[in-house]
Amino acid sequence: MSINRKELTEITNLAKLDLNTQQTEEVCQSLNQITALVERIKKADTAQVEPMFHPCDFWMPLRLDEVTEDSHKAQLLALAAHADGDFYLVPKVIE
């Protein structure tokens, strides 16, 4: 399996990253070294094996669905580069 430049462009679109032409070449090469490494997983017969998505393969604690946190609205908004009143400012999303 290898990743070509067209697929890398799709990946960067999905991941919301920009690469220039030189970076695209370098990243393509480097990702293909890694995909060659991960190909090894195909050596094992896993057809009858259940995926293990998590080490806690058992019951996990539940909690009531209720608000337990204090509001940190002012402190959180203060972390934004651009905010106005109770709102974050972003470029126009809808035409």
């Binding site: 195909k42 896993t46 259940e50 995926p51």
Partner: peptide, 15 residues
């Protein structure tokens, strides 16, 4: 399926 799920199955085998 080919990579992510298969890797999770390998994880089970190692466990």
């Amino acid at each position: 399926d080919d990579y992510y799920c298969r890797a999770q199955r390998i994880r089970r085998l190692i466990s």
